[in-house]
Every structure is written in C-alpha cells, then in structure tokens.
Amino acid sequence: MQKEQTNRNIILQACEGENYFGHTQFVHEHVLGLITSGVAEHYTPDGVTIYSEGTLCLFRRTQLMKTIKKPAEGKPFTTINIFLSQEILKRYSLEHQVKADRVYLGESNVILENDAFMKGYFNSLLPYFAQPEKLTPTLEYAKTIEAIELLLRNPALKNYLFDFSEPHKIDLEAYMNRYFSYNIPLAQFAKLTGRSLSSFKRDFDKIFRSTPEKWLQKQRLEHAHFLMKQKNKRPSEIYLEVGFESFSHFSHAFKKQFGITPTELHNK
C-alpha cells in the first residue's frame, strides 16, 4: 500500500507491506529525493541501479523510469521528494539572473552528497508531515527555493537545472524498440521523441505499418512470452514489468495472441 502526504511540490511517500512496483514511469519535473528508509531499485534498458537508505539523488525531468520500492530491516519504504518545476526554476532564473551556459548532456540521475546542510534541510521538513497544514504555500515555495540554493553549491548542476530546452526529434524506431515496455500515454511517448501527438502517430505508421496501440501490445506480449519460456519467469512477476496495468488484462491479451494463458505456458 502506498501513501502520500502532499503539499504541491513537497511529498512524503510511504509504501507499506510487500514490495511496491511504481506505476509513475514518466518523470515530468526534476525531483530531488532522499530515501529515508527501505531500498529502491530503478530499472532501465541499461540495467538496474539500487538506491539504499540515506541516498540523496537528483532525477532529471522528461525521462522514463521503472521502480520497485522495497521495505528493509522491518521498516517500510519511505522517501521525501522535492519537485523542482519548470515554472519555479524559470522564475528563479529570471529573478537571480542564473542561466544555463549550454544544453545539458550529462547523466539524467545524479547521486548527491548527503552533507550536513542537506541533512539539516530534510530534517527541517519532517515536522510538516506530522502537521501538513503548517506548510503554507509561502513556506513551501521558500523551502523549494532553499533546495535550489543548496543544489547550486555545485556549479556543475547549473546547466542541469536551468536547461529549459525540450527533447529534440530523435530516431523513433530505435526509441520505441528500447522503451516499449514503459506503460505511459502516447502523448508522453510523442513528447519524449520530440514530436506532437499527430506527427508521432504519422511517423509511427510510416515506420511500423501499425497503430502505436497494436504494436505496443504485440511487443509487450512477445517479450512476456520470451521471459516466461526462456527465463522461466512467473506471469505474476512480469506483467507490470512488460507494461500491463492489470494481470487480468495481460492474461486475456496473452491468450488471444498465443492461444494459451500465461499461467498455462508457465506450468508447461
């Protein structure tokens, strides 16, 4: 079970019980996050990165991410996230005359030093989660600006934070073959590949000779079949991993595609 206490840009997230597979896979804004207990496993096509308790990380906007959040040592998974919206960053840039020198081309996810200043900052947020009404919009904005100021102690993060350029048009075929298992709306796939939704659909038809919906489902089912037959994965382990929201939808679509349910295939 996942719980969140939210005041717009500042979130305390708690996942109680067993492992929780995160459904939020499109990162809209930069996020400064501190894992206060538990472990997070972030899955990308390049592999898995494990973030343990105490990890402080900056996640870049406009990217795809899959996460499994795990309790550890008898404690639930909890994290404090500060969302650094483009609106706030542009306002800060204008008021303080801070601008990017160039387009940011570095790592999307940057692990930061959890020094005394950062520890003091996150400790100062904890009382507000017990009494969320005390975190007024004015205080919330001030705490978000404080986070930006703390990050800018590292000059290398200026371009990271203040590069406001949007994704450029990229190779659609290569991108979709790499990220088909991410369950996000088509509009977000379009944005990530530097296209409007209409041009995304038009280009998709030229390349794949199919609609995005049909192609995505076929790719996800074939990948699921491979994972079960070649890797001996259980259907319950993989339906979220390959991009389905519910096991029943996955099972129905799988049987329609292959003439056998995922459970029957696995039992063979």
Rank of each mutant, 00 (worst) to 15 (best):
S93N: 10
L84C: 07
Y92G: 11
I68A: 09
R91W: 00
Y92L: 01
I35G: 02
T62I: 12
P71K: 08
T79K: 10
F83N: 01
R61A: 15
E53Y: 01
Y51C: 06
E73S: 10
Q63K: 09
L89T: 15
L32Y: 06
T79W: 00
T62W: 06
T67P: 01
T78K: 15
K70E: 02
I35H: 01
L58T: 04
T49I: 11
L89G: 12
I50Q: 09
R60T: 05
C57H: 02
T44L: 07
C57V: 09
L89Y: 14
L34W: 08
Y43M: 14
L58H: 09
I80D: 02
F83L: 07
I35K: 03
Y92I: 15
Q63C: 12
H42N: 10
Q86F: 01
L89M: 15
G33V: 11
E95Q: 13
L94C: 08
T36K: 04
T67S: 07
I35S: 07
R60E: 12
P76C: 05
S85V: 09
I80P: 03
R60L: 05
N81R: 14
L64C: 13
I88R: 07
V48I: 15
T78C: 10
K70C: 02
S85Y: 01
T44Q: 04
N81S: 10
Y43H: 15
F77V: 09
E73L: 05
E95R: 13
I68E: 01
F77W: 11
I88S: 08
K75D: 00
L58Q: 02
Y43A: 13
T62P: 00
T36F: 02
N81G: 14
S93Q: 07
K70T: 04
T36S: 13
G33T: 10
M65W: 00
T62N: 15
T79I: 10
I50R: 14
G38N: 05
E53K: 14
Y51L: 07
K69G: 01
G47V: 11
V48L: 02
I50W: 04
S85L: 03
P45C: 03
K66F: 00
L34G: 10
I50P: 00
L34C: 12
K70Q: 09
D46R: 14
K75S: 06
I82N: 06
H42C: 12
R91A: 13
S93A: 15
L34H: 08
K69I: 00
R91G: 07
Q63A: 10
F83T: 05
S85T: 14
P71A: 11
C57K: 08
K75Q: 12
I68V: 15
F77Q: 09
E73P: 04
Y51D: 05
D46Q: 14
A40Y: 00
T44P: 00
K90T: 04
T67C: 11
F77L: 09
G47W: 03
F59D: 06
T62M: 11
E87M: 05
L84V: 10
Q86N: 14
I82T: 10
